[in-house]
Design a binder for these strands. Structure first.
Lengths: 111, 111
DNA sequence: GGTGTAGTCAACCTACTGGTTCATCAACCG
DNA sequence: CGGTTGATGAACCAGTAGGTTGACTACACC
C-alpha cells in the first residue's frame, strides 16, 4: 500500500511507458496525442498514465485551448536519486570515478 | 507489464517495507527473522518481499545451516541511479547550478 | 529418533493496475 | 449552429501484488 511520496515516485517509474513519456517530456512539453503517438495503446491509457505521473508530482498540466500540455517536474526524481545515492558505496567502479572526478573539479575551483 | 530490468527494479523499490529491508541490509547481511522483526507482518510476507528483491537482483541469498542470510547487491540500484541521472538538469538545487556552471565554463573554454 | 527453530510452499482473499470500449465535455473552425 | 479535434470519465475485465493461515521441509541438538 504505497502512500508515501517515495513509494509513489518509484511506483510511477516502474512502468516503461511512463518512463518513455518522461523521456519525451525531457525535450519539452507535449500534448496527450503527441505523447500517445509512439505507443500501441489508446489515448485513454496514456491519459491514465499521465494521471499517475501527475499524482506522483512528476508532471504538471497546462491548458491552452483544447490542449492540456504536460510538462516535466524533476523534484520527485531528485528525491528518488537522493534515496539511491545512499547506496553509492555498493555501486561498482565507474560512477564512483565520475563522482570523484566531479569532486576533484569542484575542489580545484573552490580551493 | 514490467518485464525489463529497470521496471523490475523500480517496482521492487516502490514498497516501503522492501526499501526498509534494503536499508537494513546496507549494514550487512541478515536472516529472514532478523529482517522481519521490525515489521508488523508475518515472516511469510517478508519472505515474499525477499523473493521480489532477489528476482530484481537486489539481494542474493546465502546458506548456512538452516539460515538463508540475505545480502545486498547494488548493481540494479546503480542502473536505476543512472537512469535518474539523465534528469539532473531538471533538479532544482545545487547539482543543477553546478551543472550549469560547468557547462558555462566549458562554453567559455570551447567558444 | 524426536523436538525445536528457520524458512518456504500453497491456497486463498482483497485491492489495485493497466488495459479496453463507449460516452461525454470543451474548445476551435467553417 | 454543427462538426471536428483534444482529452477525460465511467464501467468493465484479466492479471498481479501484498497480505493472511496452515502445512510442510531442512537442519541442529539431545
Amino acid at each position: 500500500m504505497p502512500v508515501d511520496q517515495l513509494s509513489t515516485t518509484f511506483s510511477a517509474l516502474a512502468d516503461p511507458t511512463r518512463r518513455a513519456i518522461l523521456e519525451r517530456l525531457a525535450d519539452g512539453e507535449a500534448t496527450v496525442n503527441e505523447l500517445a503517438e509512439p505507443f500501441p495503446v489508446t489515448i485513454q491509457a496514456v491519459s491514465k498514465h499521465l494521471k499517475v505521473l501527475e499524482h506522483a508530482g512528476l508532471v504538471t498540466r497546462g491548458r491552452a485551448a483544447q490542449w492540456r500540455p504536460a510538462r516535466l517536474r524533476g523534484r520527485p526524481l531528485e528525491d528518488a536519486a537522493g534515496w539511491l545515492a545512499r547506496y553509492r558505496q555498493f555501486f561498482e567502479a565507474s560512477f564512483d570515478r565520475l563522482d570523484a572526478h566531479l569532486r576533484t573539479l569542484q575542489g580545484e575551483r573552490d580551493g
